[in-house]
Design a binder for these strands. Structure first.
Length: 687
DNA sequence: AGCACGCCGACT
DNA sequence: GTCGGCGTGCTC
């Protein structure tokens, strides 16, 4: 077989941390023209030479240095894992020295489609490195599974220029913002935290969307007008629908592509391939959209970055916000975080001067009226008279939104006699009523609680402790006879309601849009939402309330019930950034994220010990634990300054590799595969 | 993950 | 004297 003399550097498709680097292969002459960077390849791998998949990352000249070739069987150098932590910012991929043995040839090139662009590879590598993860895991988010037919069609008919040329781009004036502020961000590739305008707008096609969707669409169109691509990410499909509606008004037909997992596999792959075309596009999608290939990327924008859906549940668990930050630096494009609330993470970057804070030119925010529950409102009544009054008055004009904490009818039951919360006899889950006439059942396992009796006092009667959307609907329906009642929660998804009077009872995050906006918004259950024990409750509640308040028609009252203090003040003055700044100061004094970074290290005690040993001497790092976690494993939490990120991630990755290659746990009879070492950076649930 | 290489118990 | 156990290490 003749070879070209060129070397292909290949990333093997494998989840094993010890294989997360490039392997060198000879390029046979017959593959010379298709073996281009970015193509999928098959290569012989391992002692048996079995064929595995991978991506061709780069083509290089063979090593020119004089190092003695082929040390045959002898221990050839061995991967020296503990390399000095240079923490270099530069080095894209070629960190490991070229292999000097005899190269195996590529076995085949799967297709000439170059699906992994250099830019996405560099991003995947950097994102994996900063979280001690595998580049391959990140690439899985970036490159959808191959669909042969779709790919053939795309290869046969590449970049249809007419595709994007058709249609006019609307002029983007960003009328709500100071002149030039947002156009400047796009033109100068700046970075900004932008406060969205909290009001619904009516589009020319008769649909209502949040003004934020128009702003986001305008940003994308502005990038497109400059001949560059834009990535617009949203947390969920309801937001994506709004954005699509806005883009339909503003963007040239054919310039918009979606990349999200809800599409059928062929559709998803088709849109993904279209992003590879050498034409600027507006790419929209959920958290993984930040990894989409884009021709001449000019902008990455995230709507509502505080939404937990941006936290990637797959290893290496990188938050889309972080991936966007890494990519912005690599691509040197504009970066925008648009939102009503402000996440503490974004506020930190504003404080550093990394992000510029941009607000609408004229303060125009919802009319929020904090309403403490009065003693006169009697026990059980969650709705103060002022809120009743606002609702009654508003119902004469149109729909009223009522935000509640929980779906269902009565999500929590307690024993009538001793008042202790009722728990499932099988799994200890909380018992609740799904509907007024339903039998009590467990909210975790679903088992019906037949013949329940209280383990503490032997009582057999339930008392309804909390109120869900269903019971609120019942209660309000009785109070306003004849008024339409619409329930919107996880089980009953309602996207939009018309302008006719209706009571819309929605759980937080599931609020439908109302044509023309709600005539009043009642934010109930605030007290209960705040009772969740999480470091972020305040921030989360503020985000839920802000997003719901933004659905109100201009001037319509937003009644915040049962909440006072700084949160009520923040919402009514619409000063979310100030709240985030105070929150950040608190986190700083507690040494909690995002004032610094944190990583959890979980696994068998010796492996965790060894991993922590690798961190000694790194400035500013401290360790909590380890403490016993589940099933024979322990967990430690490492806190580190941002500046130590590279070094800590590098050391922990080395420990993960060592744990994976070192002595394998006795695989004797029956014993479960014991816990290997797991590292998770920036887990939002951590503290 | 697979798979090969390598050093200790019961078999023709 | 060998066949074969799976502990250990590597895969361009």
């Amino acid at each position: 077989m003749t070879h070209t003399g060129l070397v292909a550097r290949v990333l093997i498709d494998s989840p094993l941390p010890q294989l997360d680097h490039l392997f060198d292969y000879a390029i046979p002459a017959e593959l010379a023209d298709v073996a281009q960077p970015g193509v999928r390849v098959k290569v012989p791998f391992g002692s048996s030479g079995r064929v595995v998949g991978g991506y061709l990352i780069e083509r290089v000249e063979p090593a020119t240095d004089d190092a003695a070739p082929a040390v045959a069987g002898a221990a050839a150098g061995g991967a020296d894992a503990g390399g000095a932590g240079a923490g270099g910012a530069g080095a894209g991929g070629g960190a490991d020295p070229l292999f000097h043995g005899t190269l195996s040839p590529l076995e085949s090139v799967v297709s000439p489609a170059r699906v992994l662009t250099g830019e996405v590879w560099t991003l995947a590598r950097a994102v994996a490195d900063r979280s001690a993860g595998n580049a391959g895991d990140v690439i899985r988010l970036a490159v959808p599974p191959r669909r042969v037919r779709v790919e053939k069609a795309w290869l046969a008919q590449p970049a249809d220029a007419a595709d994007t040329a058709g249609g006019k781009a609307a002029a983007c004036h960003f009328a709500d913002y100071p002149a030039g502020a947002l156009t400047g961000i796009i033109a100068q590739r700046g970075r900004a935290a932008v406060a969205a305008v909290p009001r619904p707008v009516l589009l020319a096609d008769g649909r209502t969307v949040g003004q934020w969707a128009l702003t986001l669409a305008e940003l994308g169109v502005a990038a497109l007008a400059a001949g560059r691509s834009a990535i617009l990410a949203v947390p969920d499909y309801r937001d994506q629908d709004q954005l699509q509606a806005a883009l339909a008004q503003l963007a040239p037909a054919g310039s918009v592509r979606r990349v999200d997992a809800r599409q059928s596999d062929p559709d998803r792959y088709r849109d993904f391939l279209a992003c590879l075309d050498p034409v600027p596009r507006i790419i929209i999608g959920n958290r993984s959209a930040v990894y989409a290939p884009a021709h001449e990327l000019g902008l990455i924008a995230l709507w509502d970055d505080g939404d937990p859906l941006y936290a990637e549940p797959l290893s290496p668990y990188v938050h889309a916000r972080d991936a966007a930050l890494v990519r912005q630096q690599q691509a040197d494009c504009a970066l925008v975080f648009l939102g009503h609330a402000r996440s503490v993470e974004v506020q930190r970057l504003v404080g550093l001067g990394w992000l510029q804070s941009i607000e609408p030119a004229r303060a125009q925010h919802p009319r929020v009226i904090p309403t403490e529950l009065q003693a006169t409102d009697a026990r059980g009544a969650r709705i103060p008279s002022a809120a009743w009054g606002a609702a009654r008055e508003a119902l004469a004009r149109g729909p009223v939104l009522v935000q509640v904490a929980s779906p269902g009818y009565a999500p929590v039951l307690a024993c009538t006699t001793c008042r202790h919360a009722a728990r499932c006899t099988r799994c200890q889950g909380p018992l609740g009523l799904a509907a007024a006439d339903a039998a009590p059942s467990c909210r975790w396992c679903g088992a019906l609680a037949v013949g329940w009796h209280c383990p503490l006092c032997e009582g057999t009667e339930f008392r309804l402790v909390t109120v869900g959307s269903g019971r609120t609907a019942e209660e309000l329906g009785r109070a306003f006879p004849g008024v339409r009642v619409i329930v919107a929660d996880g089980d009953h998804i309602v996207q939009r309601v018309d302008a006719a009077p209706a009571l819309v009872i929605a759980t937080r995050g599931a609020e439908p849009l109302a044509h023309g906006g709600y005539q009043a918004v009642l934010l109930l259950d605030g007290e209960r939402m705040l009772a969740r024990e999480s470091l972020r409750v305040g921030e989360d509640c503020l985000r839920w309330w802000s997003n719901a308040a933004a659905l109100a028609a201009p001037g319509a009252p937003v009644m915040l019930v049962g909440v006072g203090g700084v949160l009520a003040r923040t919402l009514s003055l619409w000063q979310q950034p100030r709240y985030a700044a105070a929150e950040l100061a608190d986190r700083r004094s507690l040494r909690f994220p995002p004032a610094l970074r944190a990583a959890s290290v979980t696994g068998a005690a010796p492996a965790v010990e060894a991993a922590l040993d690798g961190l000694t001497g790194i400035d500013g790092v401290d360790v909590l634990g380890p403490v016993g976690a589940d099933e024979g494993s322990v967990r430690a939490i490492v806190r580190l300054p941002y500046a130590a990120g590279d070094q800590v991630a590098h050391a922990l990755k080395a420990a993960v590799v060592r744990a994976a290659t070192g002595r394998r746990p006795a695989k004797g009879r029956g014993y479960r595969p014991p816990p290997t070492l797991k590292v998770r950076f920036d887990d939002p649930e951590l503290l």
